[in-house]
Amino acid sequence: MRFIVPLAIFIVLVVVLAVGLKLDPRYVPSPLIDKPAPEFSLTRLADPTAPIARADLLGRPLLLNVWASWCSACRVEHPLLVDLAQREGIEIIGLNYKDTRPDAAAWLKTHGDPYRDSIFDPDGKLGLDLGVYGVPETFVLDAQGVIRYKQVGPLTPDIWRDEIKPLLAQLKTDAP
């Protein structure tokens, strides 16, 4: 009987430490989930004279992918984005974060362009409003422009299959 208490403490400790080891310390839960995406007024990457604003993102659920030509992890997830856009017809808006137009355009030419539009955010102002801290990041916006999900770091086929695809399907049936 006398070993029950130390054993219980030991088991609790092992469980707590095991959970702690499995947690990703770089993951910061976003306070923006279920909040409306911030207002912005920027230009399109392809055309400095073409404005783009929050209203252009409304009407149907979509992915908002934060990327940059200087971001090496973006290269890792990019083939998946191209594949989603081409084969599954997923609507993806790019947010080109703290980049230059020539670099970004050349990068898209090399790696393929999965974006319906890319928002050009050279100063990272929209990035700041979106709480971006580790490019690439991917947001799921619903038809009303509310942020429903945020992925920090490269998108993987597993995350797509388990989290984002079901969420998009559900948002599409919810939308009027």
Binding site: V28, P29, S30, P31, L32, L128, D129, L130, G131, Y133
Partner: peptide, 8 residues
């Protein structure tokens, strides 16, 4: 900052 990044 908390609005954007949370209590973190």
């Amino acid at each position: 900052l908390v609005e954007r990044y949370g209590d973190f």
